[in-house]
């Protein structure tokens, strides 16, 4: 335990309590790097704004567009990063994006066994369970059991493909468009695309 005996990481609304040892370290490292002109305070502020703008809603928009526009879908599957950039989704890391399409025969699942690589540009920061050991170790060994724990049962005749992310290659799942949505607008379709569907632990919501 740190000398202050409390932990902001676990209780972000500590209010008027002193920041934790690690929060003091974060501020100190950042301020020293700014003083040494290795980075600037403005860069951090702008990066925080960019990060706040990245939520699963961006991914939902991307998927809905791919569902209604076959040409966009083809471009998205051919080069994920370029297709995202068409929709104004910029990348701040030097990474490739591979979009994986779920079909009647293939179900894709994302994991990062080594650490926590995730398509942050499109989905924002990952949920804790994605970074914790049980998901990381079991997703590659018994994906069907893991999926079942999320309430997603994949029939035996559907192949499950587990995609292990790296610092250089990130993935995003293009879920299947749910049935009976022929008359849905693009916006209505986007509302069916959850974060978990784009990680592959769930299907798109059936309306």
């Amino acid at each position: 335990m740190n000398p202050h005996g409390h932990d902001h990481a676990r209780s972000p609304d500590a209010g008027d309590a002193m920041p934790s040892y690690y929060e003091i370290m974060e501020t100190s490292v950042r301020e020293l790097l700014v003083e040494k002109q290795l980075i600037s305070a403005g860069e951090i502020r702008r990066m925080l704004e960019v990060m706040d703008s990245r939520t699963p809603a961006l991914g939902s928009k991307l998927v809905a567009r791919a569902w209604v526009d076959p040409e966009f879908r083809a471009r998205l599957l051919a080069n994920g990063r370029a297709a995202c950039e068409e929709l104004g989704i910029s990348f701040f890391e030097d990474t490739q994006l591979i979009v994986l399409e779920n079909t009647d025969k293939i179900h894709n699942l994302l994991v990062c066994t080594l650490c926590s690589c995730y398509p942050r540009e499109i989905l924002g920061l990952p949920p804790d369970w994605y970074k914790l050991k049980p998901y990381r170790v079991r997703a590659v060994k018994e994906p069907r059991a893991v999926l079942a724990e999320f309430g997603t049962v994949i029939p035996d005749d559907v192949e499950v493909r587990v995609n292990d992310s790296t610092a250089m290659v990130r993935y995003l799942v293009l879920p299947q468009r749910p049935p009976h949505t022929e008359n849905f607008s693009e916006e209505q379709l986007a509302s069916l695309v959850t974060r978990d569907a784009m990680i592959g632990v769930a299907r798109a919501t059936v309306p």
């Binding site: 066994t113 080594l114 369970w129 050991k133 170790v137 724990e149 999320f150």
Partner: peptide, 12 residues
Amino acid sequence: MGGLDAGPIQRV
């Protein structure tokens, strides 16, 4: 750690 054994997914 990929492929080792572990308990249930902690959906936190």
